[in-house]
């Protein structure tokens, strides 16, 4: 052991994790800046882009992540109280919530790719009838009824929705990668908990991974309203 006491070791590990989390906030800061700049200058792009997002799916994912944040915090409590079954259960539930989040995300992504509402110059709607109903109605009111006309209005020579979806995929994609990393970490924690590696004086891994998981939740708390709700 390289530290005087287990308490020192725990606090040093935690400090390292907080420095990493501080860096994570700065990492995402760049993407939030991109969002703010595009939104500040092209509000209409976000107004139209939002028609493509399913807020029910976003809300479901929010609840899933909030619940997993609670079970992650609970796993720390179980480790401190040396409740082995509770620790295994809370770790497993957190992992399952992360998997649920990714499954919902998968359905969202595949639908967007199917419709053609994707990033940058690749944005190209395949079929007018596949557009979200509310958007179809809005476009019809403006006399836009064909796929070509819709692309002219929404595409790169029009509102430039490709930029909206570039921001959308970068932000949710980077967040999704964090969720996948979290799944890997919780799988590793489960194996270690199964071996009985943790006790009330040695549970730094459980605590630090929970901290990481909370920051993933925290970022989603901001992404959800910014992308799905306000148009």
């Amino acid at each position: 052991m390289h530290f005087d006491t287990l308490h020192n070791q725990f606090q040093a590990g935690k400090l390292g994790m907080w420095l990493f989390l501080g860096q994570e906030v700065l990492f995402f800061a760049a993407l939030f800046t991109a969002y703010a700049v595009y939104r500040g200058n092209h509000t209409e792009m976000f107004h139209y882009g939002q028609f493509f997002l399913n807020w029910q799916m976003g809300a479901a994912n929010t609840i899933v992540l909030l619940f997993s944040s609670m079970t992650a915090a609970w796993s720390v409590r179980c480790a401190q109280l040396e409740q082995r079954k509770g620790l295994l259960l809370t770790i497993a539930v957190t992992w399952l919530c992360a998997a649920t989040f990714m499954i919902i995300k998968y359905f969202e992504y595949t639908h967007k790719i199917h419709v053609g509402s994707v990033w940058g110059a690749s944005f190209n709607i395949h079929d007018f009838s596949e557009l979200p109903e509310k958007l179809q109605k809005l476009l019809t009111e403006q006399g836009i009824t064909t796929t070509e006309a819709a692309n002219a209005k929404l595409g790169k020579d029009g509102l430039g929705l490709g930029t909206f979806f570039a921001v959308y995929f970068c932000m949710t994609g980077l967040h999704g990668i964090h969720v996948l990393v979290g799944m890997g970490l919780y799988a590793w924690l489960f194996v270690r908990a199964l071996k009985g590696s943790f006790n009330r004086k040695y549970y730094g891994a459980v605590d630090n991974i929970a901290l990481y998981w909370h920051i993933v939740d925290l970022i989603w708390i901001f992404l959800f309203p910014l992308l799905y709700l306000i148009g």
């Binding site: 944040s69 409590r77 401190q80 109280l81 040396e82 009330r200 004086k201």
Partner: peptide
């Protein structure tokens, strides 16, 4: 908390309340 536990143990009621 068990004797000698490192860190603060959050009560279950707080975790549920926060959620």
């Amino acid at each position: 908390a068990l004797p000698g536990t490192i860190g603060h143990v959050t009560p279950a009621s707080t975790l549920i309340g926060v959620f």
